[in-house]
Design a binder for these strands. Structure first.
Lengths: 227, 227
DNA sequence: CCGACTTTGTGAATGCGTGCACGAGGCTCG
DNA sequence: CGAGCCTCGTGCACGCATTCACAAAGTCGG
């Protein structure tokens, strides 16, 4: 509640205090649990219960939430709707995020049709592919546009987030063009390490890496059971 | 960068020394870079160059590799083919991993057709869906089977890895049935927190969480730029 | 065979994230 | 109005991961 500007904040430009990366990565999980609670007409929730739903330690949850402010009530818990709004706001989900998908193959198709998108502020505004045969095709109510329209897409539709769903060989090139066009955040599905300039956010989702990690632990389990 | 999810580690058991989770998560990246180097007929590579390709610090790369053994040659670097084999072996990729995909919607289709699978030891052996209308359908050269054939799939095809590509509401139920059937590793694409017993590895891939994380940093950048 | 050069492997320092444990604050009931 | 109970917020300690810096170990040219 004493939300104002504290005197001895170290630096972080505008905000209260810097929120640790690990915490930021968990906020969406808490948000999802809160949405479910709200749907089941639950008014308040304790840190213990919410932590349980989110699959984390209760102390960690409280510490995470404390970075946003003191939004709980001692002896009671957290107001579901209120906390839900606070996290949404902190994550920037109270506004609309236009998204452009590059690479309309199998995965691009699936992503374009994914309903979980629009649910929370994200809106696919354009589909792009380098293949002239794909350009013009209709997918999920949009027509596929050529790669060199990226700048126009960013300027006109305001796309700030780009999703790369191309083959690995094209990923870096596409990333460069997205950055040049003015995209500030990239989500890379291509099985390839790509690099972006400072100031551009990059996250990756990599199916085969996940499988290989599972393989490691599965093998280990197997050998220790057999041997 | 604290990577998303950690599987519950089975046991240090047999191996030399326990390989840190963070290292395991990077080995597949190194592997991929080594494959590229091998394709371009490169015989040896220094830690600096390989680290560069993988997008990590050179010291970190050397420490990571040192958990596997002393496979480098001082003054020279690492033999590409040799290191490639060692990492493959450590990750359990010298053997074949039968995979079952549950939930043949948009995403399930895309995954079933994904070619990166077979590339390195993973082989989709069965597709499963709860919807009777989908059962029997042909996808990627396989026919979709009903949910209650899971035990048979695990026993007959030896499927040890299950991929969940269902809606969130079905994810936990499917996970339970996979575990009951004897699957030891699960990769969850459903936007839902699921829990599995100790001894079962679980990793998750969550598109909307990734987008929300990007939204956070994008917003932060935006507000500080605009004022 | 020796000395200069290159690059690995690792001890040590630092930083970040986690979880415990407890004080502070707020509610409820008598 | 006070006692007792509940739950949040957080100081602190611990452990894992990252990074630096350097000795060890090998190559290569003369």
């Amino acid at each position: 509640m004493p939300d104002q500007n504290e005197p001895d904040v170290p630096r972080p430009a505008s905000r209260r205090r810097a929120i640790p990366e690990a915490t930021v990565a968990r906020l969406p999980v808490y948000l999802r649990c809160l949405v479910e609670l709200a749907e089941s007409r639950t008014a308040t929730v304790s840190s213990e219960r919410l932590a349980d739903l989110a699959g984390v330690n209760a102390a960690k949850l409280r510490k995470d939430l404390s970075y946003l402010g003191s939004y709980g009530t001692r002896g009671v818990g957290y107001d579901v709707e209120f906390l839900l709004f606070q996290i949404s706001r902190e994550l920037g989900l109270t506004q609309d995020w236009p998204v452009v998908i590059v690479g309309i193959g199998n995965l691009g198709h699936a992503l374009a049709n994914y309903r979980g998108f629009t649910a929370r502020g994200f809106r696919v505004v354009a589909l792009v592919d380098a293949d002239p045969n794909k350009v013009g095709e209709h997918v999920a109510g949009l027509h596929v546009r050529p790669l060199d329209e990226l700048p126009a897409i960013v300027d006109d539709e305001g796309a700030a987030i780009g999703i790369i769903a191309t083959p690995a060989s094209a990923a870096q090139e596409v990333a460069d063009r997205l950055v040049d066009a003015g995209v500030g955040s990239i989500l890379n599905f291509a099985p390839s390490v790509i690099s972006v300039p400072d100031g551009v956010s990059l996250r990756k989702v990599d199916l085969s890496i996940e499988l290989q990690i599972l393989s490691f632990y599965q093998q280990r389990r197997g050998t220790s059971a057999v041997g």
